[in-house]
Amino acid sequence: MTAPTPFALLSPLSVRLPALWVLGVASIKMFWGSPNDIPEFLRTSFLGPDLAFFGAIMVELAFALVALAFPRWGWMLMSALYTVFLAVLTHLIATGAASCGCFGGAVSLSPLSMMAIDGTFLALMLATRPWSAIPKAPTNWLVVALCAGVGAAAPWVLVQNEQIELPPPVQPAVQAPQEPAVAANGNGTTNPQPAAGETTPPAPAVAPAGWRLPEKFPQYVHIKPLEWIGKSIHETQLAVWMDTRAYPEDATWILYLETCSHCAEYLKELEANFANDPKLYVFVRLSTDKDEVEQLVHIKPPGEQAALPKETSWVVSPQLPPWELVLEGGIVRSAVSHGDE
Rank of each mutant, 00 (worst) to 15 (best):
M1R: 09
T2C: 01
T2W: 11
T5Y: 08
S14C: 13
S14R: 03
P39N: 04
E40W: 05
R43N: 10
T44W: 02
A52M: 08
A62L: 06
F70P: 13
R72V: 13
W73F: 09
M78H: 07
S79F: 12
S79M: 10
T83M: 08
V84F: 15
A87S: 13
G96V: 04
A97I: 01
G104E: 13
A106Q: 05
V107A: 04
V107I: 15
V107L: 13
S108L: 04
L109F: 11
M114D: 14
A116C: 09
L124G: 08
A127P: 10
T128I: 02
S132P: 11
P135F: 06
V144Y: 12
V150Y: 05
L158F: 15
N161R: 12
N161I: 01
I164M: 09
Q178C: 03
E179L: 14
V182I: 14
G197D: 11
E198Y: 08
P204F: 06
A205Y: 06
A209C: 01
W211T: 10
R212Y: 04
E215G: 13
E215W: 01
Y220F: 15
I223T: 09
P225S: 03
L226P: 13
W228N: 09
I229D: 07
I229L: 00
I233A: 12
H234M: 00
M242F: 05
D243W: 03
P248W: 07
E249P: 03
D250V: 02
C260N: 08
Y266W: 12
K268I: 00
A275K: 11
A275N: 12
V282L: 03
S287L: 00
P301C: 01
P302C: 05
Q305K: 08
Q305P: 00
P309G: 06
W314K: 09
V316Q: 08
Q319W: 06
L320C: 02
L325A: 09
G339A: 01
D340Y: 08
